[in-house]
């Protein structure tokens, strides 16, 4: 029941936001927050529920953007279809990487995913259309001949996807697979002794996280209409990781809250000009020091305590 309340609150927030915010600039920040939320949710599933770290999410984000953009621009594939094909390509790449990589542990896994992300980046840089300069004139999103141009429609589209995928993810988490997933996080040996096929599960989650990042990348490409490799470098993977850790890896809503905070923060810090990097770093340091479990889990804990005290 509590969960349904969460969904409804989120849905209402999504629907009323564009009515409260009239200007395009804030709406655009909202759209970017949605894009980042999607990538962060994928990573959160991987980290919070399967106990695996990835520093290669930007690679899948890049595959989603490039494959979809190239298909739509050079081959005239309808935009939604191109994003689906891109997601399949990402899923395939995720399988190729996951089979050997998920045998690795801790730092070694981090480096393997980091290496994957860097390889994708180099491929985009060397072989992508336009090379390091990138390319533009990417078609915008269109449904059955109707071309989406308004900011509000993009806002609803990305947050609609986020909303649906949150419900989808929670269904997985609460299913039999999900319970097994949490078992992986707790102890791997234990869960395999219980008859859980740990490695197949890990691969499934890894694919899911890649697909989320890929969808976000496709959306980004068709929204901005210009892409270049720099957007998909290691820095973006680290940024996504930061979102998940700040928001709280043990909760999907944490990824969304983290993504919103990390997207809005640099915009809020614009008035600091040159000092913004420093202030940003300090805020990050302090929030990691003082909100160790992440914002959402910490808040939930507080609420629970309060609820008990009131009762």
């Amino acid at each position: 029941m509590r969960k349904h309340v969460n969904y409804i609150v989120l849905l209402v927030l999504i629907i009323i936001f564009p009515f409260l915010i009239k200007d395009n600039y804030t709406l655009t920040i909202g759209i970017f927050a949605g894009i980042n939320s999607l990538v962060a949710m994928g990573l959160s599933l991987l980290m919070g529920y399967a106990g695996q770290v990835s520093l290669g999410q930007a690679g899948f984000y890049g595959i989603g953007a490039y494959v979809s953009a190239i298909l739509a621009l050079k081959f005239g594939v309808p935009v939604v279809l191109s994003a689906i094909v891109a997601a399949l390509v990402s899923a395939f790449a995720a399988v190729l990487l996951a089979i050997p990589a998920l045998k690795l542990k801790g730092h070694y896994l981090a480096v393997a995913t980091l290496g994957f992300g860097e390889i994708i980046y180099i491929i985009l840089n060397e072989l992508g259309p336009g090379g390091p300069s990138g390319f533009g004139d990417i078609p915008q999103v269109s449904f059955m001949g109707y071309k989406m141009t308004g900011q509000i429609s993009y806002f609803y589209l990305i947050w609609g996807i986020v909303f649906i995928l949150i419900i989808f993810s929670y269904n997985i988490i609460n299913s039999r697979i999900g319970r097994a997933m949490r078992a992986i996080h707790d102890t791997e040996t234990g869960s395999s002794a219980m008859g859980v096929d740990v490695s197949a599960l890990k691969i499934k989650i890894f694919i899911l996280s890649a697909v989320y990042a890929s969808i976000a990348g496709s959306f980004y490409a068709h929204y901005i209409t210009f892409i270049s490799p720099t957007t998909f470098s290691l820095f973006h993977s680290v940024l996504i990781l930061t979102m998940v850790v700040i928001g709280g890896a043990s909760n999907l809503f944490g990824a969304v809250v983290g993504a919103i905070i990390i997207t809005v923060l640099p915009e809020a810090l614009r008035k600091f000009e040159e000092l913004d990097v420093l202030v940003y770093g300090l805020i990050l340091t302090f929030s990691l020091l003082f909100i160790r479990k992440g914002i959402v889990p910490t808040l939930l804990q507080r609420l629970k305590k309060k609820g008990m005290a009131n009762a």
Partner: peptide, 22 residues
């Protein structure tokens, strides 16, 4: 009014929208 694009397209887009709208 000077805005930093951080050498990134997405940030340049945000900066432009801020300058135009705000």
């Amino acid at each position: 009014i000077i805005e930093d694009s951080k050498s990134q397209e997405a940030d340049a887009v945000l900066a432009a929208k801020k300058l135009l709208e705000k």
